[in-house]
């Protein structure tokens, strides 16, 4: 335990954010508790399920395994930043709805952010790599078929 608070400056969904946190505070907690961005969900808190996936400088990270202080100077993107400013869903979000890629929806933000990173890295990703990448997150409701179909539908191949 420590009473020392560390100032962390980052951008979150393209807006500057400054928070003061203990060294042990995770990025997930900082996003949820300090910034009120509760769209990032915690599923296992040991880096396996991927529900808390956010983008840090463009790369998908487990927000439960990243300390908030490690995000100093980073650009963080969360599910709240996916839709257009006028509220229009991102095509990926729309694809999730169209393909019934969510049931309870708890894992959905993590899958959306994981898939966003995939799309940005290689929008023509081959099927096998797409499935392999998506296997890094867990869903208990859907059996994955809808998630795969949704991501496949926005890939340009």
């Amino acid at each position: 335990m420590s009473d020392v608070l560390h100032r962390v400056r980052m951008t979150v969904n393209a807006r500057a954010a400054t928070i003061a946190v203990e060294a042990r505070r995770t990025l997930a907690e900082a996003l949820r508790e300090d910034l009120g961005l509760t769209g990032t969900h915690l599923g296992c808190e040991h880096g396996v399920c991927g529900a808390c996936t956010v983008l840090m400088d463009g790369a998908p990270v487990r927000a439960c395994l990243v300390l908030a202080v490690q995000a100093e100077g980073a650009a963080i993107r969360t599910v709240e930043g996916l839709a257009a400013p006028d509220g229009t869903l991102h095509p990926l979000q729309q694809a999730f709805a169209d393909h019934h890629a969510l049931q309870c929806g708890y894992c959905t933000p993590g899958f959306l952010m994981l898939a966003m990173a995939m799309l940005e890295e290689n929008p023509a990703m081959e099927e096998a790599e797409m499935v392999e990448r998506l296997s890094s997150n867990l869903c208990r409701c859907t059996g994955y078929a809808g998630i795969l179909a949704a991501v496949r539908s926005v890939m340009r191949r």
């Binding site: 979000q93 709805a97 933000p109």
Partner: peptide, 13 residues
Amino acid sequence: DPPLLRGRARFVD
């Protein structure tokens, strides 16, 4: 779907 997709759903936590 819409609130779940936007990260605006409300789970207990």
